[in-house]
């Protein structure tokens, strides 16, 4: 079993196997609402491959990153709901 990496989502510490995509790691941590739509609906990943932009979160302070295209890294700080 490889060492798990730790990252935080909205301040809550989560763990995932290295190499997991951030979107997959967040879903496993029970996060389903990654962003809010224009009218305030919760949205989560749909395409898993960088097409739909529904998985956008802020990563280490950088807004609008697609969580499905980012491998999870130790110490990543993620903010949802943008």
């Amino acid at each position: 079993m490889p060492e798990l990496v730790e990252f935080t989502v909205d301040g809550v510490t989560c763990r995932a196997a290295p190499g997991t995509s951030l979107a997959a790691a967040m879903l496993d941590a029970g996060v389903t609402a990654f962003r809010r739509s224009r009218t305030g609906e919760p949205r989560g990943p749909v395409c898993g491959m960088g097409i739909c932009f529904e998985c956008r979160v802020a990563i280490d302070g950088i807004a609008h990153r697609r969580a499905c295209l980012e491998p999870v890294r130790a110490g990543m700080t993620v903010r949802t709901g943008e």
Binding site: F34, C47, G48, C52, C68
Partner: peptide
Amino acid sequence: PNVFGVGGLQALLKAG
């Protein structure tokens, strides 16, 4: 949330 594409859910599965 939790409604995915078919290839979409598969891609997420492959991504861990």
